[in-house]
Structures are given as C-alpha cells and as structure tokens.
Simulated assay, not measured.
Amino acid sequence: MDIERIVSVSEFNRLVSDYLEQGLGSVAVQGEVSGFRVSKERLVYFELKDEKARCLCFALTHELDQPLEDGMEVKVTGVPKLFQGSGGFHLRVQAVELVGAGALQKAFEKLKKKLEAEGLFDARGKVPLPRFPESIGIITSPTAAAYTDILRRLHERWGGLSIILAPVAVQGAGAPRAIAGAIQYFNEAHPIDVIILTRGGGSMEDLQAFNSEPLARAVFASKIPIIAGVGHERDVTLVDFVADVRASTPTNAAELVVPHRREVGRQLDQMLQNALGTIERDARTRAFSLQQALMRAWHAIGHRLHVVDGLLARFPYAFERVAYAYHASQERLVQLTLRLRALSPMATLTRGYSITRIQGKILRDATVVSAGDILETELAKGAINSKIM
C-alpha cells in the first residue's frame, strides 16, 4: 500500500482530534463520576463510567456549575478530543447536569453549606426593596406563564411602571450563565430599581439552574435588590437563600415588589386622619394651656389690683398723718428758732451789752490786760478797737 502523506505525531493527534470534534460534534454522555480531581487549582479531571466502560472527561473549574464528587450520576455535554501531548482520548466538558433526585439533593446540601459558611445567606447583606419602584427588571423566559402572571399582577396593583424583560432560558445546561448575564446586564448597562428573578414550578431537575454556584454568586453580587419567585411555595432553591427577598410564587413576587393602590389610598387616609387627630389634640392642649395661663395672669392682676386698692384706701389716712407730722415739725422748728434767737449772743448785744476780745479771745478778767494791748469790742451794730495806755 502506497502512503502519499507522512505526518508528525503532534499533527496526527491534532488531525484525529479535529476529526472527532467535527465529525461527532457535541454529545451528551450519562454515567457515574469516578476519580474526580482538581489539578493546579483550575484543571478538572474525572471519569464517567458504567458497568462496561469508562471515559475520561476534562474541564476547567470555572466551567462547572455544580460541585461534583465520586459516585454522582451526571449527564455531561461535551466534544470528543485528543490531548495534544499524550494523545489521550477524552471528552472536553461543556456542561454538567446532575441526574436523579438523590444526587441533586446531595449536591444541593453540599453547596448550600458552603455558601452559608461564606456568608452569602447573611441577612445583614440583604438590600431592602424600594417602597415605590419606578423601573422593574424581570428575568425569566418570555413564554413562561410566570411572566404573564407577574405582568398582570403588577398592572393590577400599581401604574406608571417601566418594566424591562431580560429573556433567558430558565432550564438546561446554559441557563445559569444566561441568567447571571442578565443580572450583570441590569447592574452595569441598564440600572433599574428592583429585579424579579422568576420561573414556574417543576421538579428538582427542572429547577437545577437556580441551584448553580455561579448564579448564586451573581445574585449575591448584585447591587440592585433581587426578589426570587421560583416555582411554588414548596420549591426551595439556593437562589431563594441568596436573594434579598424570597417570594412563595411568581405572583407573590409582584405583590411584594409594588403595593396595591387601594392599600396605599387607605394608608394615606389613615395618615391624614392621624395627622388631623394629632393637630386637634395639639390644638386642645394648647388652648387649655392658654386658658390656664390667662387664668393665672388674671389672678395675678387681681392680686395686684387688690394691693393697689388697699394702698389707695390707706392713702388719705397716711396723707393726714404726713400733714400732721409736717405741721408739728413746722411748729417745733419755730419754737427752736425762737429759743436759738433768745440764746444767741447777738440777741444779748441788742439789749445794750457788748463783747470784748483780746487776740480773738473773749476777755473775762481785767487783770490779764497790760498796757499796749489792743482790745476789740463787738456791739450790736459794729465794733470798736481800743488800746490800753
């Protein structure tokens, strides 16, 4: 047999790998996980096996939506390829889905414990819903009954809303990434007041997209508050724990997002009645306080008037006493004046007497006078100076 073309080993591996990928394309293989391991913190290797055969699978850690461990029954979607270096056949993993309620529940509990330990369920990290949102983003399938139920209930309860739908698949291998992308879109490109993440009910397999780790982390990272209305009240997903608010049903999510206009009207009426009651009570209280203040002022004024009346009543008597005292003092002054005048030396002088002084002192003894002394004699009118010879 003639061989026209000779290729290298590396080229041969590449050719066979391309042939497998192009010839078969994506395939879905179901089996049991065996030999699960992570290399260099990012390379994932495991085998899928059944009773008769095994198949090596390869993926990167960020590509796995579900935590895997040996013994789990899974459905792997991927492309058959050869490793370039070793030529080993493997299935290049594109998506992994858990199969069977037992495996799903086991993975659910394991991931729930992990996220809870990291604080993703902590109530302190929840973002409160706005009381009166103006713009609402809805992430769901446009053909889902949940979408029409939410729209109808929103319009029944409130008006003037801007509602934006981010259409996504809510089931299947690509659903978690699509939903996470819609959350990122609202947060980065089209800011709104609140996000409703919803879908109708179903089995645990149907709701598996809402139990994926990447989606749970996307919900936790959202700066916009998210209300989760996934399935029925009995349906519980990891998104319910991470979301800021959990609604029991899609319709309940709409009821939690906006109030009913009638309820708001009743609240406004009640607030008005309360305000009027408060104003009325305050007015009565102030009127009573004013009345009491006026009564106290009137009593104080009455007391002062009584004091004034007493003073006015005593005034004539006091005036008479003052007048009497004044006249008595005048008479006394006259008497004292007369007595002073009688005792005054000037009065004595007017009767013919005189006063003689020597060197300013009254002279009472003639023996103290010597020749040459100057004497001053004071008369009733005038004075005489004389010299002793």
Results as ranks from 00 to 15, higher is better:
residue 3 I to D: 07
residue 10 S to Q: 14
residue 13 N to E: 07
residue 16 V to Q: 05
residue 17 S to V: 06
residue 17 S to H: 05
residue 18 D to K: 15
residue 21 E to N: 12
residue 21 E to F: 11
residue 22 Q to A: 10
residue 26 S to Q: 13
residue 36 F to H: 15
residue 36 F to L: 15
residue 38 V to S: 13
residue 38 V to R: 15
residue 40 K to I: 03
residue 40 K to G: 05
residue 44 V to C: 15
residue 44 V to K: 13
residue 44 V to A: 12
residue 44 V to W: 13
residue 46 F to K: 13
residue 47 E to Y: 11
residue 48 L to G: 04
residue 49 K to L: 13
residue 49 K to Q: 13
residue 50 D to C: 03
residue 51 E to S: 15
residue 53 A to I: 02
residue 63 E to L: 14
residue 64 L to S: 05
residue 68 L to E: 08
residue 80 P to K: 07
residue 83 F to N: 12
residue 88 G to F: 11
residue 95 A to P: 10
residue 99 V to F: 09
residue 105 Q to E: 14
residue 106 K to S: 08
residue 110 K to L: 10
residue 115 L to V: 03
residue 115 L to D: 00
residue 118 E to N: 08
residue 119 G to Q: 03
residue 121 F to C: 07
residue 127 V to T: 10
residue 128 P to V: 04
residue 130 P to C: 08
residue 139 I to Y: 04
residue 147 Y to S: 01
residue 148 T to L: 11
residue 153 R to K: 09
residue 155 H to P: 00
residue 160 G to R: 07
residue 163 I to T: 01
residue 163 I to S: 00
residue 164 I to L: 11
residue 164 I to T: 06
residue 164 I to C: 02
residue 169 A to T: 07
residue 171 Q to A: 04
residue 172 G to M: 05
residue 172 G to I: 03
residue 177 R to V: 02
residue 179 I to Y: 02
residue 183 I to N: 00
residue 186 F to A: 06
residue 186 F to Q: 02
residue 189 A to P: 00
residue 192 I to W: 08
residue 193 D to L: 03
residue 193 D to R: 01
residue 196 I to V: 11
residue 198 T to C: 03
residue 199 R to P: 05
residue 199 R to F: 07
residue 199 R to V: 04
residue 202 G to P: 09
residue 211 N to C: 07
residue 219 V to S: 04
residue 229 G to E: 01
residue 230 V to M: 02
residue 230 V to H: 00
residue 230 V to W: 06
residue 233 E to R: 04
residue 234 R to Q: 06
residue 234 R to F: 01
residue 235 D to N: 12
residue 236 V to N: 09
residue 238 L to W: 02
residue 241 F to V: 01
residue 262 R to Q: 10
residue 266 R to A: 06
residue 270 Q to T: 01
residue 273 Q to L: 11
residue 273 Q to D: 07
residue 278 T to D: 04
residue 284 R to Y: 06
residue 285 T to A: 12
residue 285 T to R: 15
residue 294 L to R: 15
residue 299 H to N: 10
residue 299 H to Y: 08
residue 300 A to K: 14
residue 302 G to A: 15
residue 305 L to A: 13
residue 305 L to V: 14
residue 308 V to I: 12
residue 308 V to T: 09
residue 310 G to P: 00
residue 314 R to G: 08
residue 315 F to R: 13
residue 317 Y to M: 08
residue 323 A to G: 10
residue 325 A to S: 14
residue 325 A to E: 12
residue 325 A to V: 08
residue 326 Y to W: 12
residue 330 Q to M: 10
residue 331 E to H: 14
residue 339 R to N: 02
residue 341 R to A: 13
residue 354 S to E: 06
residue 359 Q to S: 15
residue 360 G to M: 01
residue 370 S to P: 00
residue 375 L to T: 00
residue 375 L to R: 02
residue 376 E to Y: 01
residue 383 A to M: 12
residue 386 S to H: 06
residue 389 M to D: 07
